[in-house]
Nucleic acid binder design. Structure first.
Length: 818
RNA sequence: GCCGUGGUGGUGGAAUGGCAUACACGCAGGACUUAAAAUCCUGUGACCGAAUAGGUCGUGAGCGUUCGACUCGCUCCCGCGGCACCA
């Protein structure tokens, strides 16, 4: 055999084909082939296959899961590591409209590109489990699940305002509306239109979605965002009688303890009571408020507007009359749409009272102990304190007082404890073409009926005009052949639902389907569920913190209730990968001309260099800017590994190998480090430690001709294999003559204790580092170390008198206090 | 404003109470070369110093706990991400 130069282009494609032929990464093969240490389901968030092809950001995510998957496979676990396509939804449809190509034709082309690129990176997916959400064999089961959810009462139809653009004459998704309330494409201001929509009762699961966050190994920030999104609030609805007329206004509050300080009531412009008031002033205010977009209301800033209704409500506690105002800072959609104003202890109420000269009463004394009658601005939002000016509550801690007065209100029948949530029911209809048809039929006699399961899949027809329609209805509503059908119940004339599902539908359960993606009798079998589910490792971008992760959790809980699953959380461990920015620290974008094309990188440096670079550049979850210079550094590392392994080729191969203890100890330490870093997603330090080892190995070979023996040299190759699968496989076969894949070999184990030959002990005097000393034994006694140090010139000069105190931590440090 | 997250050399970063700056990039000098690229070797936190003698400072700022703090506590400042008149 001759020494070879590192030419990744020579062998990468060969291994792609070989791995596929031998089904090296098949989840089935592995589960039977090895005595399993238990399953590991390792998943990257699947991509929407855009026309732009794979982004270097995708590659960062997929390499992360690939390293973890390869690691666990070598450790003897039964690994499921699949990939699929989030093909339905708006991005694909918009791209199709722009390209004037039917998405049904366009999407498969994009998928083919993505798949080819992924293969060129050597990701160890089990391609036998691959599917697209737009594949009828998959969405058949999405529709089937919809029907099960409908039957269990989780779905209902209601009129809901949707975003509508009057220039483009189309309904829009939230994603298409910019922060300033305009349409992202034409800049027109969007309106709201009332249309009947399917909605999920996700709010029924609010408590469970909140409580079960507790057991998840997820980033703290994501858990917090989910908690805030669910937004559970415990409070009380209090009824206030209005003077002179027979009407009660109900207000939601979480702070009934401050009710002795209530001086007014504010209701939302949309509140039912507003209709009773006929004055021109009120009419004008309400009209203006409802015309304003939500955005405009907010843009007005903190300055409060409002109008007095002329009515008063009575505070049950002290009989005081409180003026009733209308103001748009009160939202009709939250609580009861009416607020009791306690200006002494709520900032908005405070500002409102200042604006309209309403009394401010102080009922809580905070930390500062200031008992003056008028609340200062900085005292408004006290979170701890004691009650004053509140009769029977006086002196109580505010939390105690809250409980006491809630009981009191309930006893008197003036109020009722309630829990309120920020979470809303989930609008599930889209008036768009490119989605799963909703499998429902509307019969004049029988109402909404699910179609018989035998008719699934209800296929999305291939149509010419798939663009959004002028009326804001789904393009499917223009296809009589699709619409007109028979009622499944009475066989009379009926019409199909023409709305489609949002792209969340496919992504809500795709991770379940991977376990059994070819099953055409059921979405998954019990055996495959037990074998692989739920997902153990889920890696993806933090932008999915709420929507996708919340919706998926909701579906899994509903499926658990349907007894289709034996677990109720989909993703046990979640980790985020940071974004990859361009070299100029901006987002990669065609218009900036700063996009990195992975195909070109692979052609020049090989896939292994790209993989190593993306794992080494920064901690996995940190945002980072691309650097071609750094990429070259990773390429250099791989090349040096390659070159060093050439010593086992040819003449050199026969020469006796000199191993030494120091190098072996370093190897053992490196194996330990990599073994513990990979499951912590600390890929960058794994690679750094391997670089350190290579430096030492190279130096000892060049200076002393000391190298590893073959068995140890193979170990280093094995721990590098998850990061650089191609070149390690090539060396494994062509240098060491192995016949089976390195990726199915067993992960090296460090047996026994690592023997430390020598340690360096830092020596401090008064906490300042003055010197270091080499010791042959870690566990020397303090006296032995001190005696040894007294012989050192450097140290002696500091230790003239007797030290006051000596701190000695064996193997770590010695510190003299003098 | 609230919630989250981060702040360390020229750059990306390492170190979770014990030698701050591992590893990599860049830069400088050298070797090889007609030359360049590639590769290899040496150096590289700042300041004082002839010094590869010694010392001082140094992890956003300040204070504290400790024999010892990038790491723990308190008070600020700044960057990034998300939410926002949620009662």
């Amino acid at each position: 055999m001759l020494t070879r130069y590192y030419q990744p282009q020579e062998f990468e494609n060969k291994w792609i084909e070989e791995w596929e032929k031998e089904k090296v990464y098949s989840s089935k093969k592995l589960s039977f082939a090895k005595a399993s240490k238990g399953k590991q389901y390792i998943l990257s968030m699947f991509p929407y296959p855009s026309g732009a092809g794979l982004h270097v950001g995708h590659i960062r995510n997929y390499t992360g899961t690939d390293v973890v998957a390869r690691y666990f496979r070598m450790k003897g676990h039964s690994v499921l590591h699949p990939m699929g396509w989030d093909a339905f939804g708006l991005p694909a449809e918009n791209a199709a409209v722009k390209a004037k190509k039917n998405p049904m034709d366009m999407v498969p082309e994009h998928i083919a590109t993505f798949k080819k690129q992924m293969k060129s990176l050597g990701f160890s997916y089990d391609w036998d489990t691959e599917f697209s959400t737009a594949d009828p064999n998959y969405y058949k089961w999405t529709q089937w699940l919809f029907i099960q959810f409908y039957k269990m009462g989780l779905l209902y139809k209601k009129n809901t305002p949707i975003n509508y653009c009057s220039i483009c004459k189309t309904g829009l998704a939230e994603e298409e509306v910019l922060a300033d309330g305009t349409h992202e494409r034409c800049g027109n201001k969007i309106e709201k239109r009332d249309l009947p929509q399917w909605a999920f009762r996700i709010t029924m699961y609010a408590d469970r979605l909140l409580a079960d966050l507790h057991g998840l190994d997820w980033p703290k920030g994501i858990l917090e965002m989910q908690r805030n999104w669910i937004g559970k609030k415990e409070g009380i609805n209090i009824k206030y009688q209005i003077s002179n007329i027979k009407y009660q206004i109900e207000c939601f509050t979480t702070r009934p303890d401050t009710n002795f300080g209530a001086t007014f009531i504010v209701i939302a412009p949309e509140h039912e009571f507003v209709k009773k008031i006929k004055t021109a002033e009120v009419k004008k205010y309400v009209e203006e408020a409802t015309l304003k977009s939500e955005q405009e209301r907010l843009n007005k800033g903190k300055k409060k507007t409002g109008v007095f209704t002329g009515y008063y409500a009575i505070n049950n506690l002290n009989g005081k009359e409180m003026p009733i105002w209308i103001s748009d800072f009160v939202l009709s959609g939250f609580g009861t749409g009416a607020v009791v104003g306690v200006p002494g202890h709520d900032m908005r109420d405070f500002e409102f009272a200042k604006e309209f000269e309403i009394d401010i009463i102080r009922v809580v004394v905070g930390k500062d102990g200031d008992k003056s009658k008028i609340t200062k601005k900085e005292q408004v939002q006290e979170e701890e304190g004691a009650m004053i000016n509140s009769e029977f509550l006086n002196g109580l801690d505010i939390h105690v007082a809250t409980k006491k007065i809630m009981n009191y209100f309930e006893e008197k029948g003036w109020g009722k404890r309630v829990t309120s949530y920020h979470l809303r029911d989930w609008i599930f209809s889209r008036q768009r073409y490119w989605g799963e048809p909703i499998p429902m039929v509307n019969c004049e006699k029988c109402g909404w009926q699910p179609i018989p399961e035998s008719e699934l899949p209800l296929k999305l027809p291939y149509i010419k005009s798939y663009e959004p329609t002028e009326t804001g209805e789904s393009p499917l509503s223009m296809i009589p052949k699709f619409i007109n059908t028979k009622c499944p119940k009475c066989e009379g004339k009926a019409k199909r639902e023409t709305d489609t599902m949002p792209n969340w539908a496919g992504s809500c359960w795709y991770f379940l389907r991977f376990a059994d993606s070819k099953n055409d009798k059921q979405p998954w079998s019990n055996e495959t569920m037990k074998q692989f589910l739920p997902v153990d490792w889920y890696l993806g971008g933090a932008e999915h913190a709420v929507l996708h992760l919340l919706y998926s959790r909701f579906w899994v809980k509903a499926l658990y209730d349907l007894k289709l699953l034996n677990f109720n959380e989909p993703f046990l461990k979640l980790r985020n990968q940071g974004m990859v920015l361009a070299e100029d620290h901006r987002k990669m974008s065609k218009s900036f001309g700063n996009v990195i094309n992975p195909d070109i990188v692979i052609k020049e440096f090989g896939a292994d260099a790209l993989r190593i670079y993306e794992m080494f550049m920064a901690p996995f979850n940190a945002e980072i800017s691309w650097s071609t210079k750094s990429l070259q550094g990773s390429y250099r590392f791989i090349k040096r590994v390659w070159d060093l392994y050439q010593i086992f080729v040819g003449d050199e191969f026969i020469r006796p190998v000199h191993e030494n203890k120091q190098l072996v100890v370093k190897l053992q330490k490196t194996i330990k480090k990599v073994t513990s870093d990979i499951p912590k997603v600390k890929f960058n330090t794994s690679i750094a430690s391997m670089m350190e080892f290579l430096n030492e190995w190279e130096t000892s070979y060049n200076t002393k001709h000391v190298t590893l023996n073959i068995s140890d040299a193979k170990k280093f190759l094995q721990i590098l294999a998850p990061f650089a699968p191609f070149m390690t496989e090539e060396i494994w076969h062509n240098v060491f003559g192995e016949k089976t894949s390195i990726h199915l070999s067993s992960w090296p184990i460090v047996s026994g204790e690592i023997f430390e030959e020598e340690i360096t002990l830092p020596i401090q005097v008064n906490g300042k580092l003055r010197s270091t000393i080499k010791l042959s034994n870690v566990n020397l006694t303090e006296t032995a170390v001190v005696n040894r140090l007294l012989k050192e010139e450097k140290i002696k000069k500091y230790l003239t008198g007797k030290p006051k105190k000596i701190i000695y931590v064996p193997g770590k440090i010695i510190n003299f206090i003098i």
